[in-house]
Each structure stands twice: as C-alpha cells, then as structure tokens.
Amino acid sequence: MTHFEYPKNHSVIYRYRNPELGGQILLANQQADLHPYKNDDFFKVIWNKGSDFSFEIDGQRISLKKNQLICLTPLQNPDYSTFDSEYYILLFNREFYCIHENDDEVSCEGLLFWGSSERPVVQLNEEEKPKFETLFQVFEDELNTRDNIQGEMLRMLLKRLIIKSTRLARKQFFPQNLGKKNTELIRQFNILVEQHYRDCHQVSDYAELLHKSPKTLSNLFAEAGQKTPLQLIHHRLVLEAKRQLLNTEKLAKEIAFELGFDEPAHFSRFFKKETGKSPSQYRNIS
C-alpha cells in the first residue's frame, strides 16, 4: 500500500512513499524546509528558475545561473538553507527508482549521475524551458493523485526527466566525436572508483578491471576534457577523508587504515598534498 503526504504548514513539499519497499520521491520549491532530508540517501535534481545563487558541497562551491539544472548523487549533500532563489528540487531514493530494471543510460548509475567526475550543470534554453516546466507541473499533479498506479506514473515521469536531461548533458558536456562507447567507459570508471576507492589507489587497478591499459584511460579522459584518472581516484579518497574528519571522532590513523593506507604518515602526507592542510588542521579549522 502506498502513502501520500500533503504539504503541511504551507511548506510546499509533495511526497510519495511506498512503506513496503521504502521508496520515496519528493518535490519541493524554495519555500520548503528540506533540512529533515539532508542526510538521507537521495538522488537530487535541482532546477534554478530564478536569480543566480551558489551553494557548497564538500568544500566545493557550485554556482547555478537561471534555468540551469544540476543532478547530484546521494554522496553529494548540499546545504539547502543557503539556497536563495526560485527553484524546483526533486529527490528520490534507490528503492523508488533504481531497483527497477533500467537501461544503463537512464538508471541511477547512468550518464547523468556518473558520466563525469564533475557534476555537469545543464543549461536549459528557451526551447527546453517550457518542456521542463510542463514536466514538473505534471509531477506536482501526480503527487496530488492518490490511486494504485500513482507510483508507476511517477516512475515514468522520472524516467522521462532523466532521459531529457541526459540528452542535454551529452550534447553540452561530451565532445561529439567521443562516441557512446567511450562515454560509457568513462561512466564505468567513475562507478568502479566509487566501489573500490578504499582498496584500489592506482590507475592500473581500474585499467585491469576494465580490460584496458592505463594509457588508454588517460588518453580517453584527456580527450573528454576531464581530470586525469589518478586525480579522480585521489579526489574520491580526499572526499571520504574530509567526511570522516568532519562527521566522526575517528583518529586520523583509523581513517587512514579504512581508506587503504598502510601507514598513517603516508595518509597524512597525501591529505596535506591534496588539501594544503594536515588532517588535524582540517578538522580544527572546519
């Protein structure tokens, strides 16, 4: 049995959830308080409809101009309280969408969320803007409709949104001559880094998993205009180290061992080289 929650206290949050599977999807605008959902494992689609604003994710400043859209994974949790514009935010979890069979292109591990180490900011032009506006309005209508097929309709709409956004991202951020085969290889690399970054610290580790040479991977990422494979591996290690330092009381040596470093001193040197601060300095300053 599914459950729908109407907005309370004019917060303008529309929410559908399936208690049996744990699936959830939420639609909110700038008047909503999303703090209760900040640490939940949601994929996020954020469309800035108003004036330019910026927000921070794991120490990185992200700017959104009017009619720009960004898609974030559960690993990226922005501070919603800093959002200051007119916008739509769509949140959904794996249990709602990703447990269903989807083509790689439009799944939670698809190009839109994992095709690049940098979160692509998609620009909606004047032709696309009314199409997305209509799509989000239909989302709102469906979230207000309670029946036995509500969940399936919402999944259909979400798939359509991901397809449209993926097409724009592919056109705007990947060289036309790169080809689907190569963009797929980049996507697979990014997913493998997420799965194995604690144990695999070298490009050769991932090259072996992908049945490619390290040089082939390096050339491919250069052609795509992205960071080098080694930079991406290091970025993921630093990201996790920062989260552990900020959100736990673990000692630096404990974090070092969790991240696959044989010696705490090696981890400390690595962290300082990447961030300019030692682990203890980062924890104290932040």
Results as ranks from 00 to 15, higher is better:
residue 150 Q to M: 04
residue 154 L to Q: 03
residue 155 R to H: 09
residue 156 M to T: 01
residue 157 L to P: 00
residue 157 L to H: 05
residue 159 K to Y: 04
residue 160 R to C: 02
residue 161 L to V: 12
residue 162 I to V: 15
residue 162 I to G: 08
residue 162 I to R: 08
residue 162 I to M: 03
residue 163 I to D: 05
residue 163 I to S: 04
residue 163 I to H: 10
residue 164 K to W: 14
residue 164 K to Q: 14
residue 164 K to F: 11
residue 164 K to L: 15
residue 165 S to E: 02
residue 166 T to I: 06
residue 166 T to F: 11
residue 169 A to M: 14
residue 171 K to V: 09
residue 171 K to L: 12
residue 171 K to M: 06
residue 172 Q to M: 09
residue 172 Q to A: 10
residue 173 F to N: 11
residue 173 F to Q: 04
residue 174 F to Q: 00
residue 176 Q to F: 13
residue 176 Q to G: 09
residue 177 N to G: 09
residue 179 G to E: 09
residue 179 G to K: 06
residue 180 K to C: 00
residue 182 N to A: 08
residue 183 T to R: 10
residue 184 E to C: 02
residue 186 I to T: 02
residue 188 Q to T: 08
residue 189 F to P: 02
residue 191 I to L: 15
residue 192 L to H: 02
residue 193 V to I: 15
residue 194 E to F: 11
residue 195 Q to I: 10
residue 195 Q to S: 06
residue 196 H to Y: 15
residue 196 H to E: 14
residue 196 H to K: 12
residue 197 Y to E: 10
residue 199 D to S: 12
residue 200 C to P: 01
residue 200 C to G: 01
residue 200 C to M: 04
residue 200 C to Q: 09
residue 200 C to R: 09
residue 201 H to W: 06
residue 201 H to C: 01
residue 204 S to M: 09
residue 204 S to W: 03
residue 205 D to Y: 05
residue 206 Y to R: 08
residue 207 A to I: 00
residue 207 A to K: 02
residue 207 A to Q: 04
residue 208 E to C: 07
residue 208 E to T: 11
residue 208 E to M: 06
residue 209 L to C: 02
residue 210 L to N: 03
residue 210 L to M: 15
residue 212 K to G: 00
residue 212 K to C: 10
residue 213 S to P: 01
residue 214 P to C: 02
residue 216 T to N: 01
residue 217 L to A: 05
residue 218 S to I: 03
residue 218 S to H: 11
residue 218 S to N: 13
residue 219 N to L: 14
residue 219 N to C: 01
residue 220 L to Y: 12
residue 220 L to D: 06
residue 220 L to H: 09
residue 221 F to W: 08
residue 222 A to N: 10
residue 223 E to A: 12
residue 223 E to V: 05
residue 224 A to P: 13
residue 225 G to K: 04
residue 226 Q to Y: 01
residue 228 T to W: 07
residue 232 L to F: 03
residue 234 H to D: 13
residue 237 L to Y: 04
residue 237 L to F: 01
residue 238 V to D: 04
residue 239 L to E: 06
residue 239 L to S: 12
residue 239 L to V: 00
residue 241 A to P: 01
residue 242 K to Y: 00
residue 242 K to H: 03
residue 242 K to N: 07
residue 243 R to S: 11
residue 243 R to P: 03
residue 243 R to D: 12
residue 244 Q to P: 04
residue 245 L to P: 11
residue 245 L to D: 07
residue 247 N to G: 05
residue 248 T to P: 00
residue 249 E to R: 07
residue 249 E to F: 10
residue 250 K to E: 15
residue 251 L to S: 08
residue 253 K to Q: 13
residue 254 E to F: 12
residue 254 E to A: 13
residue 255 I to F: 11
residue 256 A to L: 08
residue 256 A to W: 03
residue 257 F to M: 08
residue 258 E to F: 14
residue 258 E to R: 14
residue 258 E to D: 15
residue 260 G to S: 04
residue 261 F to P: 09
residue 262 D to V: 07
residue 262 D to A: 14
residue 263 E to V: 10
residue 263 E to Y: 13
residue 264 P to L: 04
residue 265 A to I: 15
residue 265 A to D: 12
residue 270 F to S: 01
residue 270 F to L: 07
residue 273 K to N: 10
residue 275 T to Q: 11
residue 277 K to R: 13
residue 278 S to E: 08
residue 278 S to Y: 07
residue 279 P to H: 09
residue 279 P to Y: 12
residue 281 Q to F: 10
residue 282 Y to V: 11
residue 282 Y to N: 05
